[in-house]
Design a protein around this nucleic acid. Structure first.
Lengths: 103, 103
DNA sequence: CAGACTGGTTTGTATTGCAAACTAGTCTGC
DNA sequence: GCAGACTAGTTTGCAATACAAACCAGTCTG
């Protein structure tokens, strides 16, 4: 084990932010999820959920597909391959940090 | 297990910030540490280490004692009881989040 | 056709995290 | 004895963030 605690500072900040960590964690457990489902699950306001999703989309971690359910807008979100990889790496890094410092 | 993923948004942001998580983790493994030791261990610049330590002090998580070693200033840092508790709780919360979402 | 509702996006603002500049005191060479 | 370099930090400037509140386009209801 290369006991390099310092690595914790290299965590992907985009995923590290708790609200987004929650979002991507949910997304990684389902095939895809719509906006309102994510809002219910996360408890975030629409505004903040929208903003976080935009950042994840800009980073290429989430694909957002806008369509309609009947006459109402429907926003479907799905983790991309890059997103899945980033989440896995984040978890890996965090897990090794925790293991290095078992108290 | 109350599978409440949402709890991740309640993580203490003061500790969640990676640089500070590193600082308090180091501090929780030693009785006390001086400024330059922390700087070497964390790799942070003096400026940023100073700023992070001030935040931790303001939060009551770290006690900072300024003295001299010979004629040079010596800043000794030590986790307070509140700090120790906050770190333990943070780790506990993060660990349960990780366990809820084993991939 | 006014007002409420749905499913979002945009804006305003206060807080951050970081790099760079600064400070106070000490040591060295000349 | 004083100019410049060094030590051990603190402060400042600024760009990026996160959140709440305001806004918006379209739909439904009385």
């Amino acid at each position: 084990m290369t006991d390099n605690l310092r690595r914790v500072t290299e965590l992907d900040r985009l995923i590290h932010e708790p609200a987004r960590l929650l979002i991507v964690t949910i997304l990684s457990s389902v095939e895809s999820a719509d906006f309102l489902f994510l809002q219910r699950e996360t408890g975030l306001t629409k505004g903040n959920l929208s903003a976080h999703l935009s950042k994840l989309e800009d980073a290429g971690y989430v694909k957002i597909h806008k369509t309609f359910k009947g006459k109402l807008p429907l926003t479907v979100c799905k983790l991309t391959a890059a997103g899945t990889k980033a989440v896995a790496q984040y978890r890996q890094q965090l897990q090794s940090f925790m293991e290095m410092t078992t108290q």
